[in-house]
Nucleic acid binder design. Structure first.
Lengths: 190, 190
DNA sequence: ACAGAAACGCTAGCGGTGCTAGAGTCGAGA
DNA sequence: TCTCGACTCTAGCACCGCTAGCGTTTCTGT
């Protein structure tokens, strides 16, 4: 039994290795540089080994996304708890969100932009995703009023997502970013 | 002189053919199905011909995006002019925008999601892009108040963009879409 | 009218991609 | 010690974007 246990442990370690290598490669050179060949070389195994852990490249990206989302959730939470007062908390969340998107674009892409089949707005959604959304939810709650809290949070989230993605792809000038975030927050936290 | 004119005319026609084939292929099967080989086969020329018209696949997508944006601008304008009153005009614009994104996802992607080097928020931006943004601008103008009109429009645009992209990628449940748009508009047109 | 030149589209191929079939190795249990 | 099963590797498939270089066709100057 201990032999099998050791094998499973080693397998789990290797899976972690793959995910970390994929994340590092993506963060340093972008997702287009993450190929199964380079990834295999990086973890010092052959390509087919990757496919014994993950169904395909998409599944690897999804795994990286889930882990990255835990980081995002932690940063959102830290920002929210550090602030005092609902307005400050909402501003802190928004700052943390766009800061994460700017500092870790590859991670942000995997979570929110790349086409990767992750269950999102369902109970089966991975915990980190729900945690990150939960942080937004708590920050928005004081301003819900008569609106549905879930829909309101989704709408604010969409606003932030649109701002950071359009800016990062060069469709919005970076110099106006703070002003746009301020407008968005002002409209949501009246 | 007329010979050269005919040649240039034929060349221009072929370029149109390429752009239309790319658009049709993308709209019917998605951009991942648009390969240079399939495109070449579709226009009944060899692959290298594509490269005598466009620098690469990205440039073809950019051309499709610019044309598609003209359609978008027209639909936004139609929606805006049909409505009476600023509130209705803004709502019409938002409806037209998300309707376009839903009906023509491939076109929307080429314009707003795919990484393609189009100059956006500059004077060199292609006219259709400026026209589409201009429609948003006019719809937002009555609600600018003390805010900078440009920034405010960019922010509303980001909100709409976030809503439609997150929904289309399965990150937001479709059934809440109307509610979210209503919330967004309510917050911008007080 | 004809030779030379230039423009043009083609075939063939490069280096890469995600992914997999099948061979080979190696360790565990009888 | 031998057998068998689990596991990893090599090699290769079909495809990708892109391009070098050849051959034909058309225009130009004499």
């Amino acid at each position: 039994m201990s032999i099998q246990a050791r094998r499973e442990r080693e397998r789990a370690e290797r899976e972690r290795l793959i995910i970390e290598a994929a994340r590092e490669l993506a963060e340093s050179e972008g997702w287009e540089a993450v190929t199964t060949r380079r990834l295999a070389e990086r973890v010092e195994y052959s390509q087919p080994v990757l496919y014994s852990h993950f169904k395909g490249k998409d599944a690897i990206m999804a795994a990286v996304a889930v882990e990255g989302c835990a980081d995002l959730a932690a940063e959102l939470r830290a920002g929210r708890l550090k602030a005092d007062g609902p307005e400050e908390a909402l501003a802190a969340i928004a700052d943390a969100y766009s800061s994460f998107a700017e500092r870790r674009p590859a991670l942000y892409d995997a979570i929110f932009s790349q086409r990767v089949d992750l269950p999102f707005a369902t109970p089966e959604a991975p915990a980190p995703l729900q945690a990150a959304f939960g942080e937004l939810l708590e920050a928005v709650r004081p301003f819900a009023g008569d609106d549905d809290l879930g829909l309101l949070t989704e709408t604010l989230w969409s606003g932030l997502h649109g701002l950071v993605t359009l800016m990062r792809d060069g469709r919005l000038p970076p110099e106006g970013h703070c002003g746009r975030v301020a407008i968005l927050l002002d409209r949501f936290a009246h």
